[in-house]
């Protein structure tokens, strides 16, 4: 196969794979973040036994490889009546995998909000849910943003593991291509290039978002 024919054949396939990768990453980031925030809030404001339970959840998920979690979910799930196709299993797996890391980042963000700003709200008589929504979460987000972006970047590369359960993302396509053409090096270089581009975009967007969110807030206050 000539290089041109090679590209014409595999180009669109790889692009589609990359599209799936980006969608999986976006889904896992958005929902992992949302789940992480819920976990942190439940730990802060929920009943104590729930807090312990979530602590165990965080430690178990953080303490085990994503690959194993995905196997358990995809191959072990049916034993518990949870029969998922590859893509939904992958999306759910990514969400679960990311959530404890995001939860810990949010926890640190909450801790960074000066106590006095919460007390000022209480002294005025603002109810606790409104304090959380209007003051605690916005300020926690600002201080947590760099760490959130950082973990979102880590998560881009975890998507390759979804290939193991046949999610047709970029890694899956690259492996097929390698097997069909024996062009291992090219295939994997293309993979690296795609990821590098994706990470570059995310990190630039993160920096802009950070500048936007901190434009009124000086350091240390």
């Amino acid at each position: 196969m000539t290089d041109a024919a090679f590209l014409a054949h595999y180009g669109p396939i790889l692009l589609r794979g990359f599209g799936v990768t980006v969608l999986c990453w976006a889904f896992g980031t958005v929902f992992g973040m949302a789940l992480g925030l819920v976990i942190t809030l439940a730990q802060r404001y929920g009943p104590r036994p729930l807090g312990w339970l979530l602590r165990v959840y965080i430690e178990v998920i953080r303490g085990t490889p994503f690959l194993v979690q995905l196997f358990v979910l995809y191959y072990g799930g049916p034993l518990l009546g949870l029969r998922l196709d590859a893509v939904p299993a992958g999306l759910l797996g990514l969400t679960i995998y990311g959530s404890p890391y995001f939860a810990e980042i949010f926890r640190a963000g909450f801790a960074a909000v000066p106590r006095g700003q919460i007390e000022a709200a209480r002294a005025i008589g603002i109810a606790e849910p409104a304090i959380v929504r209007r003051i605690l979460v916005p300020l926690a987000l600002v201080s947590a943003l760099p760490a959130l972006v950082n973990f979102a970047i880590v998560l881009t590369k975890e998507t390759v593991i979804l290939s193991i359960i046949t999610v047709p993302e970029l890694m899956y396509r690259v492996q097929n291509m390698s097997a069909e053409t024996y062009r291992f090096l090219e295939a994997n270089l293309i993979l690296a290039l795609f990821f590098w581009a994706l990470v570059e975009v995310i990190s630039r967007a993160g920096r802009r978002l950070e500048a936007h969110m901190t434009r009124h807030i000086t350091e240390g206050r």
Binding site: Q117, E119, A123, G125, I135
Partner: peptide, 18 residues
């Protein structure tokens, strides 16, 4: 309801920076 009647001013101002 009680705190609504009481204003407080802090040493560190404690304005909401956002």
């Amino acid at each position: 309801a009680m705190r609504r009647e009481i204003g407080m001013v802090f040493q560190a101002f404690n304005l909401w920076p956002h």
